[in-house]
Design a protein around this nucleic acid. Sequence first.
RNA 1: GCCCAGGUGGUGGAAUUGGUAGACACGCUAGACUCAGGAUCUAGAGGUGGAAACACCGUGGAGGUUCGAGUCCUCUCCUGGGCACCA
Length: 831
Amino acid sequence: MAIHEQYEPSVVEQKWQKRWAEQHVFRMARHAQRKKKYVLEMLPYPSGHLHMGHVRVYAIGDVYARYYLMQGMDVVHPMGFDAFGLPAENAAIKDGVHPATRTAENVATFRQEMMAMGYAYDWQLELNTSQAEYYRWNQWFFLQMRKKGLVYRRTAKLNWCTGCLTVIANEQVVEGHCERCDSVVVDKEMREWAFRITRYSQELLDALEGLSAWPERIVAAQRNWIGRSEGAWVDFAVEGTPHNIRVFTTRLDTICGCTYVVLAPEHPLTQSLITAAQAEKVRQFVEKISKQSKVERTDETAAKEGVFTGAYAQNPFTRERVPIWLANFVLADYGTGAVMSVPAHDVRDFAFAKQYGLPLRTVIQPATDKALEEPLETAFVEDGVLANSGSADGWTSPEARRRWGEWLKEQKLGEPTVTYRQRDWGFSRQRYWGTPIPVVYCKACDPTEEGIDLEASQLPLLLPPIDTQAVIQGHGEPPLAKVPSFVNTTCPKCGGPARREVDTMDTFVDSSWYYARYLSPGFEGGPFELAKAQHYLPIDIYVGGPEHATMHLLYFRFWCRIMKLLGLVEVEEPAKRLITQGIVNGSDGRKMSKRWGNFVPPLEIIGKYGADSLRLFVLFAAPPERDMNWNNEQIEGTYRFAKRIWALAALHVEKVKGAQWTGPFSGTALEVVRATHKCIKRVTQAIERLSFNTAIAGAMEFLNTLYAAPAPHTEEEKAAMRFAFKSLALVLTPFAPHLCDEIWEALGEEGCTVEAAWPSFDEALVVDALITYVVQVNGKLRAELHLPVEATEEAVCEAARAEPKVAALLQGKTVKKCIFVPKRLVNFVVV
RNA sequence: GCCCAGGUGGUGGAAUUGGUAGACACGCUAGACUCAGGAUCUAGAGGUGGAAACACCGUGGAGGUUCGAGUCCUCUCCUGGGCACCA
């Protein structure tokens, strides 16, 4: 369309989307000799349609992809689909449509809607995790990791989601509910497969230090999640038996104040400790607790309950005899499943001791203040100075922990140690629509069901075709168990009859390494081409939601280490810089959802205002990392901005497109040139510091200046205006690419904006000829001066004093001091 | 309880290093154009007082440092998020 016609976004946008695709503008290695830049947004699950959250993340990534292209880099910017997963399977339960069919439809829709947004993707790199050419490498990784002892099968009380009807990982449980579907999560004793991510707990923690370009909140969330805790284990001998109770404590300094020990009811020693007198009480207690779910048990408001076992242990420090109790608040799977209780110096122990009438002993006194008042009204939990602790009296808490830790080790009674809150990553899912686990069970070769690995040559192990309605029913049984042709197989070892594993893998496995596969998506000789990975990794900028802080973002850091261990990559950390975008809420501030009737489909907005205006809106309304609300009036505002650019271009472009001016600019032309340089500087720096909203504001301000400028008449003025429009098209193209390319073309320029160089600015022209000086008297604003840039300090102060208002205030006073800030202000300090 | 973000007009948000608080935009008001509405353009606008000039007050609250504080320090309140009977 011609620029003098009315602005019609759909026409402009389709034209340029087609042209970009035809000319392969965004193809990886199009300029292979350039420095690489890998810009990536987290790959989406293809649900029905793109929503505003997607529009926002991809718009953020797109700004950088286009910006770095123009900065002369070889930009990789791929997109793909996290296509396995529950929603498609849940839909199949309802309507019997095979997940593969539905997923294919959804992928097509997603791709089409993304294209309508004009994102700068290299679609040649597209990948789909539900395709065998992708998931076969999940299976390959599984086999490699098994060889390294990083995968194992275990029986445990697992998190069973009552909605998804599958086991889920610890990371996916939020306050006792499923992170995905919000259903209640219950305990279920099951066998499952797990990755030994805890082997890397310390490394994952240490390396957080190096992630300086990750948001602090994500780093902090991971640190919390890993939950490193320094302390010591100590063995308490059980009186009259050969057993020891091993406790874990972070407060070894308080050990002389230990007046009882407590075991988790599930502790392996529990049964052997019970005395006849207490047997019935203990049995009832254990039964009661075993019926409670993890959620009930770990609810802090729940009553602390316990029971005396009848047995005693010996404190290895004081040689005292202390009773052994069981209690609901002691967790079997943290530390050693047993604690030493020091009621005087631990809030929880204090409450428990009061409740059951157990004794307290104060062994720590505040370092500075006077001694604690007895009896204690609350536990004193801070570090201090030891008391009532024999020869250790007077030591400080840290000193006691260190010295006693050494002593324990010498005596072989204990040892300083570190525990972590993080658990191994259980990845078995009792679902169909995921990667089959390449393992079989053979009664003859593998009686304990550890699983026998397939040979690498037997991969991929394909998901079998199924009668959807018969197999996917949502009853909580693994659907694959209902497919005899899949289940029944032969043992790779003995050739006898065997059964296949029927669980599939967590989809977080898929997203743990996809970023490496993008670089060579069709590669068949391994998960990816090593040379490509070496050249393009790590990801330079990774954009995605903060909700993945302790799930995907932790798993993919783990997996990167696995890939390094396997010699596949050289880097340890997958992503240098992380940007976590805020949520797009509805206009009422609530989560955008059909339920609240505040849902705005992007496609509708594209149809009404165009993709450029939508991109401008999501980037202008708030800084990328902050939450924002959709606003029907603000989108009108960005649309108006787009129309104003178009209208002014229509007015001038034809007249100025051939204008040439080599000499220095002057008069109104110079003002236009200065405004242009100012705009380039502002936008460039704003992009660099992730402040896209102010980048757009800078362009808006520039446009307002151009509106206010007189229409160009002379060749000089025309050349200045041409320069202004060229620059505007270049700096705004990361935000509104279609519109900018149209203007670029109307100006008679070749190709498209992303193939042009990012404009540079002249620092000398960024400063106005006249500087506004603020004149203060005692720090209060009293006058404004407009003086030439070259005015000296003396001249400025002189002019300031001459201002009538200032002169009046200085009348009869002594100027103690005169503060001069170049190009900014003068402040007279008077008394 | 611990950790992380935040708190600025009617609204979304600006304010690299302490230096004109409120850029830019929405909404609003007035005017122009129009038969009219919409669109568009022009102008106005933190609050209080005042016809105006102008004055005073103003970045959750209280102190402090400084010629000068949204910005730095101390304490405190509130909102959102993460972790947690974690020994």
